[in-house]
């Protein structure tokens, strides 16, 4: 392994910025100094626009999925300073994978490829058949119902292990509700959100 440094931040505050490229926040951690992405980290030019990031990501993904044998279409949009790319087509279940694992890999590679090509950190989210959007909605709904239960009973409810992305969705959804709070516990990949009633 090239870098033993911590990948996942320990505080919920850090999770609030989970969606920066590959979770690689600016850090003074000495372990990062010799890491693979110093070419990106040392870049000081103005960052590329989200439209450029989206177009580059679309080019990368179209070529990648074609090489993998999938016939699909890639749509881009810009959400604030984040580029969003959604892939649609036949047999996309294989591209999403079990619990979105293949989609996570696709996003990881797309972010890295685009960052190398543009020589800058980028904000990029990749979705397939709006899987994330749909998962996000059902997770938020689940979080709200758990929050209601925790508040009613004044207890803690431990949720199943989730990715940083999914935990962020839970924190955000419960954060809008009075009388409950959330925090994360445990180590990746078993890190989980605890919903605590504070009423």
């Amino acid at each position: 392994m090239i870098d033993p440094g911590p990948l996942e931040e320990q505080s919920n505050a850090a999770e609030q910025v989970f969606d920066t490229p590959s979770g690689e926040q600016d850090t003074s951690d000495a372990a990062d100094a010799g890491a693979a992405e110093t070419d990106v980290a040392s870049e000081t030019e103005a960052p590329p626009g989200a439209d450029v990031v989206a177009a580059t990501a679309a080019t990368f993904l179209e070529g990648l999925l074609k090489a993998m044998g999938f016939d699909c279409a890639v749509a881009t949009e810009v959400d604030g300073d984040t580029a969003v790319v959604n892939v649609t087509g036949e047999g996309m279940g294989a591209v999403i994978g079990r619990r979105g694992q293949t989609l996570e890999a696709l996003q990881e590679l797309a972010r890295t490829a685009v960052q190398r090509r543009l020589r800058a950190r980028v904000r990029l989210n990749v979705d397939v058949e709006s899987y994330r959007a749909r998962r996000r909605e059902s997770l938020a709904e689940y979080a709200r119902s758990m929050a209601g239960r925790a508040r009613e009973r004044g207890t803690e409810i431990e949720l199943e292990p989730m990715s940083a992305y999914e935990r962020k969705i839970i924190h955000d959804a419960v954060g809008e509700i009075e009388g409950v709070t959330t925090f994360s516990e445990g180590e990746e990949p078993a890190r989980k959100v605890i919903v605590r009633g504070t009423g």
């Binding site: 392994m1 090239i2 870098d3 440094g5 990948l7 590959s22 690689e24 890491a35 693979a36 992405e37 990648l64 090489a67 993998m68 044998g69 294989a94 591209v95 994978g97 694992q101 293949t102 996570e104 890999a105 696709l106 990881e108 590679l109 890295t112 190398r116």
Partner: peptide, 23 residues
């Protein structure tokens, strides 16, 4: 380029393996 293909904590090579299976 070794580190670039492996990635931090092996993230890139793991992603390549996942996509290799999907392909």
């Amino acid at each position: 380029d070794m580190g670039k293909v492996i990635g931090r904590n092996g993230r890139i090579i793991r992603s390549l393996r996942t996509l290799a299976r999907a392909a």
